[in-house]
Amino acid sequence: MAKHPEASHIVGGVDSHKDLHVAAVVDHHGRILGNASFATTRHGYRLMLAWMRSFGDLQRIGVECSGSYGAGLLRYMQAAGVEVLEVTAPDKHDRRRRGKNDDFDAESAAHAAYAKRHTLTPRSRDGMAERLRVLRVCRKTAVQARRIALQMIQTTIVCSPDKVRDLLRSMTRMQLIRTLAAWRPDLTAYRDVEEAYRISLKSLARRYLELHDEIADLDNMIEAIVKDLAPELLAQTAIGLNSAAQLLLTAGDNPDRLKSEASFAALCGVSPIPASSGKTVRHRLNRGGDRAANSAIHIIAIGRLRLDTRTQDYVARRIAEGNSKLEAIRCLKRYIAREVFGIIMRRHKEINQSQIAA
């Protein structure tokens, strides 16, 4: 393709979808140069990149939903050495004025990337943290399914005939599950009420045990990845496997995209928000950010309040200075975020150096 004669520096924008991505290109004056659609395949990504570069020197690309529909495009563009920005929100005034279609969304993404507003550097999707994320998503759904299976067992037992219920009344959870899984009901007698209950309870118990084993296997994989990524994190007081895994996910495979530990604190929702008025000078809790990371830091803070004397002394000192306990915990969570970010960044540099040396 011959390059467009009017533009030398151009910026792309992509409205991502499941089967088709819609792309737009703007020049260094913010003018729209073209729109096109491409398949969500490697060949389609290659055609999109060639099409964008035909207009001039491609500076960067703004992509909507780079963590879901645009994940494949993100990996391809990063491998090709193209800067990709996540477009966080469409321009509401522009959408209200022009309406909505895929071409407009792609053009809005291109304008946002051109002005670098409503954008951020996305997490890369090809490292250990991405593998950790996928395994944790699988584990989360398995835990939910196991809980539902247990609830169904308990509900079914409550409604079962007295002869079945009396056998199971005094058992602990695992005794109950293993007893039910070992039952041998007559599968041909499913028209009988009691046998139907036995068949149902056996099926639910076996489902529970299968999910229990699946979760244990996933926990072993997750633990191995967390220890590879940041073993020092697990050595800290009150930082367990799940909390460490969540904080590593929040930082991602490219934590250097975060400009400072303050930006990591904001991402975790533990940065102080000014709430001053008149003669009152105070800060409040940040209700934004990654709430899963905020929950992990809160769990660490509560654990340290119970186990660590230095943390107990710190909170007591803050309360003596006139802060409420909630405000003291807010300050504590900010310090934990600083500590965690330092550990993650040190380990990230060590991994990068070892890869360069290899």
Rank of each mutant, 00 (worst) to 15 (best):
G62R: 01
G44D: 07
W51I: 02
M48R: 02
A79P: 15
R75H: 11
K92D: 13
N101W: 12
L49S: 01
G81H: 09
W51N: 01
G81T: 00
R75Q: 11
I32G: 00
G81A: 03
M48S: 01
R98C: 12
L85A: 05
A24C: 10
D91K: 08
H28L: 06
S37A: 06
G81E: 06
M77Y: 12
R95C: 10
G44A: 05
F38S: 00
G34N: 07
R96F: 10
L33E: 05
Y76H: 12
G34L: 08
M52H: 06
A39K: 14
G99N: 04
T88L: 14
F55Q: 00
T40V: 10
L33A: 02
H93N: 15
S37M: 08
S68H: 15
D91V: 08
Y45K: 07
M52Q: 03
L49N: 03
D94T: 14
T41F: 08
H43G: 14
I61T: 07
T41D: 02
V63K: 00
S54A: 04
R60G: 07
H43Q: 15
L47T: 05
V26Q: 02
H93D: 15
G70M: 04
L85C: 06
L74S: 01
L85E: 00
L33D: 01
Y69P: 10
A71K: 06
G34Y: 09
V25T: 00
G30H: 07
Y45M: 10
L33P: 10
A71W: 09
M77T: 06
G30Y: 10
R46I: 10
R95W: 12
L85G: 01
N35M: 09
R95Y: 10
G56P: 11
D94H: 15
Y76T: 04
V84F: 02
H28F: 11
S54Y: 05
G81N: 07
I61L: 09
M48L: 14
R96K: 14
R53S: 03
A39C: 11
G81Q: 07
E64Y: 11
L58I: 03
C65A: 13
Q78W: 11
A50S: 09
E64K: 08
M52A: 02
L58D: 00
G34Q: 05
V26C: 08
Y45P: 00
D57A: 12
R31S: 14
S54P: 11
G56L: 04
G67Y: 07
V63Y: 00
R98N: 14
W51Q: 03
E83F: 13
F55M: 03
R31E: 15
L85I: 00
G81I: 00
A24L: 09
D102L: 05
A89Y: 15
R95K: 13
R31M: 14
L33H: 02
R98T: 12
D57K: 15
H28I: 04
G72F: 09
E86M: 11
T41M: 06
K92W: 13
R42Q: 13
L73E: 01
